[in-house]
Computed example of a mutant assay.
Amino acid sequence: MDYHFITIEGNIGAGKTTLAHLLSKKLDARLILEEFADNPFLPKFYENPKQFAFPLELFFMAERYKQLKDMLVSRDLFNTVTVSDYLFTKCLLFARVNLPEEEYRLYQRLFDIIHQQIVQPEILIYLHAPVSRLQQNIRKRNRTYEQSIPDEYLYSIQETYSTYIRNHNVPTLLVDVSKADFLNNPAHLQAIMDALEKRYDTGLHVVSLPD
């Protein structure tokens, strides 16, 4: 396989972390996972988005940078495979939805400075699911602060991601995970593995999972 840095993205509840775990085992890869549980502003944000959106997004950006900057000094970056369950640009996408215009412009200035220092993935796997499936997954994993996420918020995040992946310059595998079961259906995981054996141009490339 030609890819050394693989990133998985998608909306809240799309199954990013599950797939990242499975791929890292299959590929004997280094695994980088979003450390959302350490963000003290996350429960507060869901209770009062206007008050806590800015510190929430700043904390996330700092933590993601701290994780990913280690790759800059890693001597074996391109001798081993790394799988991450988030894209650093996620910072900007969520900030676009969560922040008012003036705060967003300030946040974007900070992002632009930091983003230049981050290694970009060679391929992105984007997991797409309808909001009804996302809500089902959110209920199933039972994080208390997530249980009242409104559909409208998930739609906003979905649209922001869709706009981004149509215009960015990283080859992207678009996977409909409406009926995916990577844990219990080996054929679904194998479809992703097979897709990663190919080379892709910049743009979207649809990967279909078997029934």
Rank of each mutant, 00 (worst) to 15 (best):
D76H: 02
T82W: 00
L87M: 05
Y107A: 11
Y200K: 03
P171H: 03
E103D: 15
L154I: 03
L196K: 01
T172E: 14
Q190S: 15
V119L: 14
E197R: 15
D112R: 08
P100I: 13
I123W: 08
L204A: 09
L87N: 01
I123K: 04
V177C: 11
A129H: 06
L173G: 09
Y126N: 08
Y164L: 03
R109D: 09
N185Y: 14
L183I: 09
R133P: 05
L174D: 10
Y104I: 01
S156E: 02
L174Q: 15
L134I: 04
N142C: 01
Y107S: 02
L106I: 11
V207I: 01
K140W: 09
M193P: 15
R141S: 02
E152S: 15
A191Y: 12
F78Q: 08
V97L: 11
I113T: 08
I125S: 04
L127V: 08
R141K: 10
V97M: 01
N169Y: 14
L92H: 05
Y153K: 03
L196V: 07
T82E: 00
S84F: 10
L110D: 09
S132Q: 07
K179W: 14
I118P: 05
D151W: 06
I138W: 00
Q116L: 11
D151K: 06
V81Y: 01
V170M: 09
N98F: 07
T163H: 15
T160K: 03
N98T: 12
V131A: 06
I114E: 06
A129C: 13
Q136W: 14
T144R: 15
R141W: 05
Q190E: 07
S84Q: 05
T144V: 03
H188W: 15
F78M: 09
Y155M: 07
T163N: 13
Y200G: 00
V206G: 05
Q117M: 10
A129S: 12
R139H: 06
K90T: 07
D112V: 10
D85T: 01
P171N: 11
H128F: 06
Q190T: 05
E103H: 14
P130I: 05
V177W: 08
T172I: 08
N98Y: 08
A129L: 13
V97W: 05
R141I: 03
L183F: 15
A129P: 06
H115V: 13
P186W: 13
I125Y: 04
T82M: 04
A129V: 07
I123F: 01
L93I: 11
D201L: 12
L183R: 09
H128N: 15
E102A: 15
F94V: 14
V206Q: 04
L106T: 10
N98G: 06
T80G: 04
F94E: 06
